[in-house]
Design a protein around this nucleic acid. Structure first.
Lengths: 155, 155
DNA sequence: AGAGATAGACAACGTGGTTGACCAAATAGT
DNA sequence: ACTATTTGGTCAACCACGTTGTCTATCTCT
């Protein structure tokens, strides 16, 4: 048994699993036409959602400043995933909405994640995957932000 | 079985677990005097090791360019975690070595990670933690790089 | 001794974040 | 209704972290 398991390994394994999934996702997305999609884009599109949000609201959801959110939107616009439109109800605001290309990315991502989980089930068995998920649910504080992006290095 | 579990949740849980661990680690490190330590620093110090390496070698270990490694070393020097010394055997090379402050960070990190794993064991039981680790070991490709830093956004 | 590989540094750039300042529009308070 | 404050968007400067390209100095191999 793993009596001498060092606590060092756990974060590495968790990150490794995450990273493996995300790498496979983007491999597959690239193969399906989303060559320029990056991990951060998916999270942002997810936060934008099908209803659309303002940049300020996006910043709140992602846990970053409105300026940072604005820059992210700029990049997404340049890549064709979202577009800005003047708000109908607020003269200051601009609503960021997914383009059909953006909706496509989200849909494909969901499908690919399902496939990847199915692969894990194929190697580990459904019980161990279920157990892994429920263990993590029990131990991960709820409402964890997916700000995540720069969190690694910067203050 | 959990028929409706979306594949979307798995990466989020994995990342959440990782993130929770790292956040707790840095809370505790800050409390113990390492206020300016960032996740990326720990990984770099780990790669430098107690023997010391050149910037180019560090780049190789981290899977980044030697220039990027050099910049990382600059930051670590500024924070007091490492120091540069001319190599005894190679007139071009400068050896990066941990300071005692850097060694201290690594030692405290190891201790804290052990405590955190013990907390998981306390909530989940040893079987579920062992099972989680072995499941991930089976599914994470070995030799996964901890380059990781910028990998989120950039190419 | 000369050719090629390697270490380090410099510059320019891209991505993703931060503050601070500013204007225009919405909203609250008297 | 008219100020006062809050809020949305943007600009500018900066930092962390990565990239490529170029350059010099040194090492290594033939």
């Amino acid at each position: 048994m793993s009596a001498v398991t060092s606590g060092y390994e756990l974060p590495l394994l968790l990150f490794g699993g995450f990273r493996a999934l995300i790498d496979r996702l983007h491999e597959e997305l690239a193969r399906q036409g989303h060559v320029d999609a990056r991990p951060a884009h998916g999270f942002a599109l997810q936060a934008i959602g099908t209803t659309g949000v303002t940049a300020a609201e996006l910043g709140r959801r992602l846990g970053v400043s409105k300026q940072a959110a604005g820059k992210t939107v700029d990049r997404l616009v340049r890549l064709g995933y979202v577009e800005r439109a003047a708000s109908e109800v607020d003269g200051r605001a601009k609503v960021v909405r997914l383009t059909s290309f953006g909706v496509d990315l989200l849909a494909r991502s969901a499908a690919i994640f399902d496939e990847l989980r199915a692969e894990w089930v194929a190697t580990l068995g459904i019980e161990r995957v279920d157990s892994l998920e429920s263990a993590l649910r029990a131990v991960v504080p709820p409402g964890l932000r997916v700000d995540s992006f720069g969190w690694f290095g910067a203050d």
